[in-house]
Amino acid sequence: MDRSIPQEALVRIGVKKVRQYDVTRQDIKRFAQAIGEANPVHFDEDYAAGTRYGTIVGPPLFCQMFTFEDVPPERLPRDGSPSEIDVPIPAQRTVGGASSYEIFQRVRAGDQITATSVLKDVFSKDGASGKLYFIIVETEFSNQRGEPVAKETATYIKRL
């Protein structure tokens, strides 16, 4: 038992949040623009028809669009950080993190993506300049046929 983690944080471990999103061609185009990806398979239907996908698809990490719950601003922490990592621990500053993505298939326009996220763990470690707090969030993305699309395990690191 990690005694530096308040009970109010520990009770959130394992709680699932589910949300759904309808994917449009415009979503894919905008995501591609935001990441600086110029491959026409993400926005040109004629070009995409001649690729192995046969249609416009999202870039590999397209499900990043659905990582964060779209709660209204007043329900976010004061620093605007995602509600997924708003767990009551004695740390405020975000100091890095990690992602591990598995990609099972590309997202297509017209897909309905279900994102299921769960707080997997909260723990602390002693760092060189104080205690570091780790928040592990796992999110599974599936489509309207119930097929897995992607899975992310994200590690957020916070300190005082």
Partner: peptide, 12 residues
């Protein structure tokens, strides 16, 4: 743009 498209409102 990346914050907007991923709905990441973290002020940093």
């Amino acid at each position: 743009m990346f914050s907007a498209v991923t709905w990441n409102r973290h002020r940093i």
